[in-house]
Design a protein around this nucleic acid. Structure first.
Lengths: 139, 139
DNA sequence: TGTGTTTAGTCAGATACTCTGATTAAAGTA
DNA sequence: TACTTTAATCAGAGTATCTGACTAAACACA
């Protein structure tokens, strides 16, 4: 099987499981919303940066942020350093989802380690870390 | 960085690059169409199987197959073993895209190997192969 | 300082993708 | 034969995404 698919399958598996866990905990967000939400920095992030990072247009990011704002997961505050810009910030409500996501991620990693072994898990992480250096458009 | 994102980033990078290469070679397909197209078996595949494999509903798979059929990349033939079913098959036209995709994939793998080294690349593949055993919903 | 260019974000409109629910027809089962 | 399941489609709706045009603030520099 080609390595693209080999990366895609577990990647989607993680996405599905974390979203399911977060939804089950009562946070009603979609996958697309979650992809934006998880990229918001604790200190706040500009829309343009979110868009780049999630690899969507500013319009799409704006659309998703609007929804997350309406649902009370995000808020927009003026950017003190730039009058044109606003900072998107996560609300207290959204912060409640973080431990849920982390717990599910930890559960997944434990299962994976169980299946492939501690050594291979470390190798996997190391290789992926290095790959992100050349494949992450937002670094 | 969490391992979900660590998998997602290079995975999307591969998708983007292969799609771009295939598009550049004159095959006018979307990402969603490509995800279905690449899952069609040489001997033909049932719509239901495609849907499961690509993790979308039968309706969505049907919608995408319709478009690919109109564009001449897929055809539907009766399934000789089941009167209800039809087999989706790739046309000669679509087969031309395979070497394009393979060449781009080879290029990507070469670049990656260049960056992380042959040994780590082999370890990566091994770990991912094993992970797919527990994360591939369609195996 | 004033003018032209870039940047951050939004508005409007269109398209693509995906889903839920209901339906038809062919198999499979007892 | 009657009941249940399975493969696929139809109809309709909702979500996500894009292109193009626009406003306002910031920046660059002659």
């Amino acid at each position: 099987m080609n390595i693209g698919l080999l990366l895609f399958i577990p990647s989607r598996n993680v996405e599905n499981r974390i979203l399911a866990a977060v939804n089950a905990a009562g946070f009603d967000v979609s996958q697309a919303q979650a992809r934006v939400l998880m990229r918001v920095d604790p200190e706040g992030t500009r829309l343009t940066v979110l868009a780049e990072s999630a690899q969507v247009t500013k319009q799409t990011a704006g659309f998703l942020v609007d929804q997350l704002e309406k649902a009370g997961y995000l808020e927009r505050v003026p950017d003190p350093t730039d009058g044109r810009a606003r900072l998107v910030r996560v609300t207290e409500k959204a912060k409640g989802a973080v431990p849920v996501a982390n717990a599910e991620m930890a559960r997944i990693e434990a299962e994976w380690e169980q299946h492939i072994g501690k050594r291979r898990m470390a190798q996997l992480r190391e290789a992926l870390d290095m790959l992100c250096e050349i494949t992450d458009p937002y670094r």
